[in-house]
């Protein structure tokens, strides 16, 4: 393998890893606060992708507007999912919310089948995204550069919200001790809604970029990336945002690089993620950056 090919693989890993990381952040933030695995998150990712192409083909929206509209709508849907399916179960045993999450996931998938039909749809990409950029022998699609940069910007925005705003302080407090946060005057439900909104917006952004990168839409398109992002979140230490990012990138690199270096194993690429999950759970059950979380009663 020469340097140019390696750089191509490197950038591809970075792209895939960033997309996983953006989804993983939503899993980890919700888990950090509610100890809930939001299974509907992978459907949020899928809806983000569909809505953009719906906006473009049905309503003839220009690209940027379709993207912004989709992200806002999907963020709103994430908030609604919490409001309708999780909030009424806040004081119920945690397994109830988990079952509710699985239900919502199936429900949204079926809604997508009804509205968008089950057949995979080709994604039409703007022409300037189709032409590879060639630089000193390195041949990359523009998206391979855009995705990591855009993802980085989104993550920096997230860091700003979490560490430098009042709502972010509320999030960090709630993730440790909901009751005391409440006593201190934190509007817990509002902060939780914001968390769902932000997580969903990031998943939508990931879904949109995913659909451009692998230009096909399908109601079940969220399942595998969602699963892997969840593994990334567990690997990094569920509840930790930095962990989710590191986990996502790690998974992206493992997946692309093993296939690049061991082409014979290409058929098993999805298995690597699960091997990684089992390995980390055996060696360090709390994940890379995770701390032990006391169960909430």
């Amino acid at each position: 393998m020469n340097l140019a090919t390696f750089i191509q693989h490197f950038l591809n890993s970075l792209t895939l890893g960033s997309l996983y990381a953006l989804i993983a952040i939503g899993y980890t933030m919700v888990y950090g606060i509610l100890r809930l695995i939001n299974f509907a998150h992978s459907e949020i990712f899928m809806l983000g992708a569909y809505l953009v192409f719906w906006g473009i083909t049905l309503f003839h929206l220009p690209w940027p507007l379709a993207i912004v509209a989709s992200i806002i709508l999907v963020a709103g849907m994430g908030i609604m999912v919490d409001r309708i399916a999780y909030r009424p179960l806040r004081d119920a045993p945690r397994i109830s919310a988990l079952i509710s999450a699985i239900g919502v996931s199936f429900f949204l998938q079926n809604v997508a089948i009804v509205f968008f039909q089950a057949i995979p749809r080709e994604v039409y990409r703007p022409e300037w995204l189709e032409n590879p950029i060639i630089f000193h022998g390195v041949r990359v699609l523009p998206l391979t550069l855009f995705v990591p940069v855009l993802s980085l910007l989104l993550m920096l925005g997230l860091v700003y919200v979490v560490y430098h705003t009042k709502a972010g302080l509320g999030m960090r407090a709630i993730s440790k001790d909901i009751e005391t946060s409440y006593l201190m005057g934190v509007s817990v439900n509002q902060v939780i809604a914001l968390t769902f909104g932000i997580g969903s917006a990031l998943a939508a952004a990931s879904g949109i970029m995913w659909a451009l990168r692998y230009p096909q839409l399908q109601p079940i398109m969220g399942t595998i990336p969602g699963f892997k992002a969840f593994i990334a979140a567990v690997f990094g230490g569920i509840g930790s945002i930095q962990g989710a990012v590191i986990g996502g990138l790690t998974l992206g690199f493992i997946e692309i690089m093993t296939v690049a270096f061991f082409p014979d194993l290409a058929g098993y690429r999805d298995a690597f993620a699960f091997i990684l999950l089992i390995a980390i759970l055996l060696v360090k059950p709390t994940g890379l950056l995770g701390v032990k979380m006391e169960d909430k009663v």
Partner: peptide, 27 residues
């Protein structure tokens, strides 16, 4: 009316200053 709960329940992962700002969250 504010209550300081039994067992202190300060936020161990937040700085002293952030704990104080949290107390002022309603303002």
């Amino acid at each position: 009316i504010v209550m300081s709960p039994e067992g202190r329940r300060i936020f161990p992962h937040l700085s002293v200053e952030e704990n104080l700002y949290l107390g002022a969250y309603s303002r």
